[in-house]
Design a protein around this nucleic acid. Structure first.
Lengths: 106, 106
DNA sequence: GTGTCATATGACTAAATAATCATATGTACT
DNA sequence: AGTACATATGATTATTTAGTCATATGACAC
């Protein structure tokens, strides 16, 4: 492997951990068709505002979403450059190698 | 988003969760330069055998490693087709967007 | 400045996940 | 069959992570 510094390890953990959580994943999905503010995300996902804020903070920390303040609202947009190809890759993987999981096995 | 069945959601969670764990990530790294049996992985990583087995089972479940029994040893090889481009993608992301994390911030 | 809406933060609790321990299974060799 | 080595499994405990609650901050309008 291209062994890098131990902060790289931390970054991997934070990155993948951010995507592993179902609610965060839903938030990312909510943003996939365009930037939205926190209230809009809450409405779309039916999540509590504080929970959304906490999770957006983590997603931002990992460079997966970018905030933009307009007036009193804060709009978030997903990092298309990473998220799009990543999800494409994973979708292909899941279809090919995770048939057991898809079948409901666990 | 390309919304799929809820088992897809489960698959995403399992997939990313598998990579989020530091020890599992180390196991994947240990396998990156060729297939190894459990004992060899233990020696390389300095992890306990039961822990390695538990984690290999999960990685296998997610289609990230493939087992092959030869005699009394079980050799595991990483799923290059997914892991290689995935890590490449993430490395690029981390370099670009996670400078704060790389700088030790948390 | 006061009130209101939008979002963020910190502390605490609840829930999920991982590591460990004890033990079982499986294979080969004698 | 008996022993030794290799790996797997299940149950329990420890640790991590996420969600909730109370509250703070920030921006705007009056």
């Amino acid at each position: 492997m291209t062994r890098k510094s131990c902060n790289h390890d931390a970054a991997y953990g934070l990155f993948f951990g951010s995507l592993a959580n179902h609610n965060r994943f839903s938030i990312i999905n909510a943003l996939r068709d365009g930037k939205k503010n926190v209230t809009e995300i809450c409405e779309l996902t039916d999540f509590e505002q504080t929970m959304v804020s906490h999770n957006l903070r983590r997603l931002e920390h990992c460079g997966m979403v970018f905030p933009e303040r307009i007036g009193k609202c804060c709009y978030y947009q997903v990092n298309e450059k990473t998220i799009k190809p990543l999800l494409k890759l994973i979708d292909a993987h899941i279809e090919k190698y995770c048939c057991k999981i898809l079948a409901g096995e666990r």
